[in-house]
Design a protein around this nucleic acid. Sequence first.
DNA 1: ATGTCTTACGGAAGACGTAATAATA
DNA 2: TATTATTACGTCTTCCGTAAGACAT
Lengths: 293, 293
Amino acid sequence: MELRDIEIFLTLAEELHFGRAAARLFVSQARVSQSIKAQERRIGAVLFERTSRVVRLTPIGIELRDQLQPAYRQITEGIAVVTAKAQGTRRMLTLGTMGAIAQTLGGPTGDFRERNPGVEMHFKEVHPADPFAALRSGDIDIAILWLPVHEPDLTVGPILRSTPVMAMMARTHPRDRPSIVLEDLGDCLVVGPNGPIPRYMEESLVPYFTPSGRPVSRGALVSTFQEVLTAVASGTSVALTQAEAADFYQWPGIAYVPIADAPLSHWAIVWRTAAETDLIRDFVAAVADHSHR
Amino acid sequence: MELRDIEIFLTLAEELHFGRAAARLFVSQARVSQSIKAQERRIGAVLFERTSRVVRLTPIGIELRDQLQPAYRQITEGIAVVTAKAQGTRRMLTLGTMGAIAQTLGGPTGDFRERNPGVEMHFKEVHPADPFAALRSGDIDIAILWLPVHEPDLTVGPILRSTPVMAMMARTHPRDRPSIVLEDLGDCLVVGPNGPIPRYMEESLVPYFTPSGRPVSRGALVSTFQEVLTAVASGTSVALTQAEAADFYQWPGIAYVPIADAPLSHWAIVWRTAAETDLIRDFVAAVADHSHR
DNA sequence: ATGTCTTACGGAAGACGTAATAATA
DNA sequence: TATTATTACGTCTTCCGTAAGACAT
């Protein structure tokens, strides 16, 4: 049983689906079938119960996975560490975040650091008005974005958290009350994005029409979170943002107002499909582990 | 880097000699050279400093070995455990010992058990008069014998311990004194082996001639340790044995007498070269670790 | 000369893809 | 019929041995 076979076995043990396992490994699904079959003959036991509809680990398969998983991880990790050291390159994972989300990542990043001791983590700010640029240029490996994201070259991973949406406005603003509803946006100027963010993504956070059908007018066009703050502080525009911002970006003249009927916004990790690495996969796994609890 | 390459790398890292590593792996030494070279190109660093005279790990090589060693062990171990379970076979290692040696193996066997949790250990008695039979028949995997052992089909491992030789005799025997010398054997009947033990091995423990050249006569011919005890108790014959026997086989009418000028007898582990398994290699390693301390 | 590591070359094994087949919903 | 796992077969990589070469003792 070579490392390659172990990789195939462990991938199938995670995906429990020959097609998806094959896709993750960039091989044909026949190859996965052949490899698993060969190992089953070698070991002398069925590792997966499978019908053409469902794939499941047998008890022996479970035991084998539990034996192989940590060791396989240590080997790939060890080779990566030594290779990086030999070539003088540093192993790093760069995350792109917006606003307050970066402050709330302690759980998954802690796990990730623990399991990848030799890896440096870096954070960069992503502009809400142009959420994919840093990803596509390679400046960051992973972005944390609100859904939906439908881009052919990007993969959307597990949801990190789901947060309420709040309206951010100057205390002098006429709509500064304990709570508002989406309909109120029809009477406001809302800050718009000064960048190439796709419309479907923008309007999932800031709709173009109120529930009754009135248009929601865009006011200042901004590209960074700092610009949002100044635009709001100036008193003319309202901005919509995730609730965590209220905890981390308190500003003297600015109020955060709940929007009673706004849907939660879901934040997920996103990466370039073609640039997926082991580190990215590990980080995704860490996030998935955390959101399961 | 496949498992096979890791195995080659780790073997060379132990042996620090291409020829010996190749022999242990049953491949040509060219293959070892090719594999190491390929890994060095892949990783981008030299793993072994080598002249045609000495092979040594580089710092990077040391780090790689430390990363890979335990994980490789866990993988082979895990596959072996699962395979054994699947096939309903038990994993066991059977040791053949003589007399008191079995009682003094706590150290290495403890280590071995700890590192191979799923493996049963068994002990069988080996007849001194026919020390290789059980090994060659497959009844035992490893024998613990005194040196020298020069048999073409057997491999001699590290020395387990070196013990003084004592004379065992009836308390009524004329030579029962606080201490004797080899020359005294010329006046005794010494028990001889009733079996096919090679002469070179027998006489290394019980010489055929005294230092002055007088013959040492054989008395009773025995095959088991029990027969030795009864032959000695009967009062006619003297037996030579390792000192530990005095601690474990006290008998009312029997005395153990030091032989002042007898050389130490060295006890080593021996196995059939063709039947060498991972378990045997592990046990050898455990013994080697212990005798280094 | 002898012992040891490396390089060149060729054959065999096996990894993998394509395409056809079987089985299930 | 659509989806998914398995089997058959051909290609191509690579594993490995043999033999010759390079280097030191």
